[in-house]
Design a protein around this nucleic acid. Structure first.
Lengths: 129, 129
DNA sequence: TTAAAGCATACTAAATTAGTAGGATATCGG
DNA sequence: CCGATATCCTACTAATTTAGTATGCTTTAA
């Protein structure tokens, strides 16, 4: 059971942006500060943008900035943007033909809810110190 | 973020055994009832045995049985036996040279603890109905 | 009008997970 | 004691997912 490094890198980048909320910052700089491949980070930020968590500005002096205050962006938001819905087992969120005799789906459902709750309570602003 | 099907299959097999705690049951039968590949399940049960969660009996009329009462085996026990320690990110449980400047390790530590707690509270006996 | 930046797509490499194969070993029942 | 039955062990292969790269296009501030 692991989150991917997408989530790890993405979260680091988001916290990086949260540390100076008012400025836009370009990919190269974030990548350097957080030791992430520029090209890979480019894609992650793209996903985060599509999820409306960051805003991008093209052209010279462009870059990225948080779209909402760091207080209003949770770790769950970031993880979901990058990895999709939190579902700790394939079957969660789908209907399964074995369902009527499946003893364990309930476990993964409870757990998924629990994880999402935990991650929703942690905001980027809690991680900037 | 997903648990592997090892955890899923293993849990199903364990709940299957828990449904008739007093009997030993052979792999083929469990595999058939839970629609799992016999050979794969063989390996999973082996891991569970090494973790002292099941007991095995060789020879004719052999098979597997829970080593402890279903009330005293948690989902966390099963998952850890099959997947190793619950650590939702690579860095958890290790020391990392970026640690002094890492904003996010704490997140994965909190979450790991939380997940383990949740899964420890669910016992096999809760899943046999 | 040009250089700096993001945007988009497709590809490749690495790692992990899932599953298979084949035989060795142990043991119960007759 | 023999043989059928069942677990145990190691190694291999296939599939899937994750991580990372390459190339070029588009937008825009200076």
């Amino acid at each position: 059971m692991k989150f991917s490094s997408k989530a790890e890198y993405g979260l680091k980048a988001m916290v990086n942006l949260a540390k100076d909320e008012t400025r836009t910052k370009n990919i190269k700089l974030i990548a350097k500060e957080e030791t992430i491949s520029v090209k890979y980070l480019e894609r992650l930020l793209n996903d985060l943008r599509k999820y409306d968590l960051v805003e991008s500005f093209k052209g010279a002096n462009g870059g990225y900035a948080l779209k909402r205050p760091a207080k209003k962006i949770s770790v769950a938001d970031v993880v979901i943007a990058l990895e999709g819905p939190i579902a700790p087992m394939k079957c969660v969120g789908k209907t399964c033909r074995m369902e009527h005799q499946c003893s364990s789906k309930i476990v993964w459902q409870i757990l998924g809810t629990q994880i999402e709750k935990t991650l929703s309570h942690i905001k980027l602003s809690d991680l900037t110190k």
